[in-house]
């Protein structure tokens, strides 16, 4: 039996989450006695495909296709390969792409699907996975009853681990039966040079306590020094101080970086719901009673405008000594 991993690429380069997913599949394969098969769709060079073997994929199915596949047809394509290869576990990254494909694949397989998974199954028979529910308030153990199991792994929850194996690359064209497309991709607009919030290991975030968009300079500077993504709270994005793509919280993005810096963030329950899975939370707030301190691991009670320059100076020193 095997585990099929959909490894997403962007412009021919695999995303970090794809390597994390293969690392996870490798660990799962060890538990379950299975082979890891990666499925790649798009124009990806063999040198790049070979990298999947570094993380534990022994078979790499590369579908050479340069156009845009709408989600329905993409799900049909993956479903076709599940049929051809016979895996019982199908893995996706829990991101915009995984979310748009996993349900369609699961429906066609009549398979149980669990998203937001953050670790290896706690049991293989029955197949039970852990995830957070009620927006971070409760831990759940979810059992999948069906033969096929579709799993979406939360980003930065397992980590990228090298497990080099000998891998075989097979190139294929699309052979699945697809529907005639009902949609068209008109344009794509990418932000250049920014670290993706969904993939960031370090996130530096500001709330209303930052007082205004003009005070974001030090947050961006600290983020730059730490190789971090920048984020914000809902009021900040609602006020238009920062783009809404930076909003983390219940209705924004749910993230789980290694470290989350909260500057001038009071810690409303809706915000905490989006960041509570961070491994370490650091809060700087002038109000010692702020709710954020009850979820933080490290805290400073004080003015963000005084703390930030000191943190920036210390981060510079750390970087210079590295």
């Amino acid at each position: 039996m095997s585990i099929l991993v959909y490894t997403e690429n962007r412009e021919g380069k695999f995303k970090k989450q794809s390597f994390e997913l293969v690392s996870y599949a490798h660990a799962l394969a060890q538990l379950a006695g299975r082979e890891v098969i990666a499925l790649s769709v798009g124009e990806v060079a063999d040198d790049e495909l070979k990298q999947l073997g570094e993380y534990g994929a022994s078979r790499i199915i590369a579908i050479d296709y340069s156009g845009h596949l709408e989600s329905r047809n993409f799900s049909k394509l993956i479903h076709h390969w599940v049929g051809a290869l016979g895996p019982d576990i199908v893995l996706f990254a829990d991101n915009n792409t995984g979310k748009s494909l996993a349900g369609g694949v699961a429906a066609r397989l009549k398979a149980g699907v669990v998203s937001g998974v953050s670790g290896l199954p706690i049991s293989m028979e029955p197949f039970i996975l852990s995830k957070m529910v009620y927006t971070g308030k409760v831990n759940a153990q979810i059992q999948i009853n069906t033969h096929h199991k579709v799993v979406l792994l939360a980003g930065n929850s397992f980590g990228v681990h090298t497990n080099p194996v000998t891998s075989i690359i097979e190139h294929h064209n699309i052979v699945a039966e697809l529907a005639s497309p009902s949609s068209e991709l008109l344009s794509t607009e990418m932000q250049k040079g920014k670290i993706l919030l969904s993939e960031a290991e370090v996130v530096v975030s500001g709330g209303r306590g930052m007082k205004g968009p003009e005070n974001w300079g030090p947050i961006e500077e600290l983020a730059g020094l730490l190789g971090a993504a920048t984020a914000c709270t809902r009021p900040v994005s609602d006020e238009g101080w920062r783009p809404h793509t930076e909003h983390v919280g219940q209705t924004g993005k749910v993230i789980n970086p290694n470290i989350y810096f909260a500057f001038g963030i009071s810690g409303a329950i809706q915000h905490v719901a989006g960041v509570s899975r961070s491994k370490v939370i650091v809060a700087v707030n002038k109000d010692p009673e702020a709710a954020i301190f009850s979820v933080a691991d490290y805290g400073i009670v004080g003015d963000v405008n005084q703390a930030l320059p000191q943190l920036i100076a210390a981060a510079k020193t750390l970087k210079d000594n590295a």
């Binding site: 799900s75 829990d94 979310k99 748009s100 494909l101 996993a102 349900g103 369609g104 699961a106 429906a107 699907v113 669990v114 998203s115 937001g116 995830k131 957070m132 529910v133 009620y134 927006t135 979406l152």
Partner: peptide, 8 residues
């Protein structure tokens, strides 16, 4: 927090 109903 399943985020799969639409896809299914």
């Amino acid at each position: 927090n399943g985020s799969v109903v639409g896809g299914l």
